[in-house]
């Protein structure tokens, strides 16, 4: 079992990272940390994808020296996915950061619970 994990070290790490990120996103109260958690989570997925796409001993799938045989290259699709993913995660991160800034401006806090309490107070008054 352990040897399996060791053999698939990248995947294992990716899963651990994903777990860390997921937990942070879910449980942390600080918004910035939540966003960091989200990024870790995404990154873990990219790592996983990249690890999957990487085939030992093959080239990066860019045709430079005229070799057209597919077996010479790595799988290009995961790399493409990673790129797309990064774009997506950047945009969501940006959005969340923007939101965080707005909330901070308003409530002077990054603690989500604090913010919610204040929101409730605001509603009540």
């Amino acid at each position: 079992m352990a040897s399996h994990l060791l053999y698939n070290i990248e995947e294992t790490v990716a899963m651990i990272l994903f777990g860390i990120g997921f937990t942070m996103l879910l449980l942390h109260r600080n918004l910035i940390r939540k966003i960091m958690g989200m990024n870790i989570m995404d990154t873990a997925v990219y790592l996983f994808l990249a690890a999957k796409g990487y085939i030992k001993g093959r080239m990066v799938p860019i045709v430079t020296d005229g070799i057209l045989d597919a077996s010479a290259y790595m799988n290009p699709v995961p790399s493409g996915l990673v790129l797309t993913g990064i774009v997506v995660s950047v945009s969501t991160t940006a959005l969340m950061l923007a939101l965080t800034i707005r909330l901070y401006e308003r409530y002077h806090s990054l603690d989500l619970d604090q913010i919610l309490i204040q929101v409730k107070k605001e509603e009540g008054s």
Partner: peptide, 23 residues
């Protein structure tokens, strides 16, 4: 303020969901 806090909650939960979906 309400909308922002609602939005960030939505975002967080969505991200959890889409993270799982992605993996």
């Amino acid at each position: 303020g309400r909308s922002f806090s609602a939005a960030i909650r939505y975002m967080i939960m969505s991200q959890l969901g889409s993270g799982l979906f992605l993996i």
